[in-house]
Amino acid sequence: MSLAFSEEARARFEKTLARYPNREAAILPTLHLAQREFGYLSDEAIQYVADLLGFTPAYIEGVATFYTMYNRKPVGKYHLQICRNLSCSLMGAEHLIEHVAKRLGVKPGETTADGRFTLSTVECLGSCGTAPVMQVNDDYYESLSEESIEGLLDRLL
């Protein structure tokens, strides 16, 4: 199977390239774009980005695996990322993680059998004043309690 960007993504890619003096600097934005287009960075996606930018797949993979936000494995439709750092822990994050894990029947790092949710613990999301915090895909959910997270999961189910 060969992957390719949609026309829209292709246009965004060209626009991105124009902002940098070389193609290497476009690696991070192109990986972001590829992850949005293809869902996660499979070997094929890495190869595609490598071909687009003129690097070896090994080099692109080396960059991609440095950063936690690039997923080399498929993630669920909703990627629940709960902060486990100190401010969130002081405000109950541990209990929240346990609660969500129990409700979904998965451990942190796992995806539900129906592919709907992936549960992850993450480091500081930079929103400590509204702890505990969870990022779901692009959005932050702040000042969470067991009740509010239940309500959110009900909406996403």
Binding site: L28, L31, F66, Y67, M69, V122
Partner: peptide, 8 residues
């Protein structure tokens, strides 16, 4: 130009 990091 905005350059987005990727979690590090």
């Amino acid at each position: 130009t905005i350059h987005l990091g990727a979690g590090a």
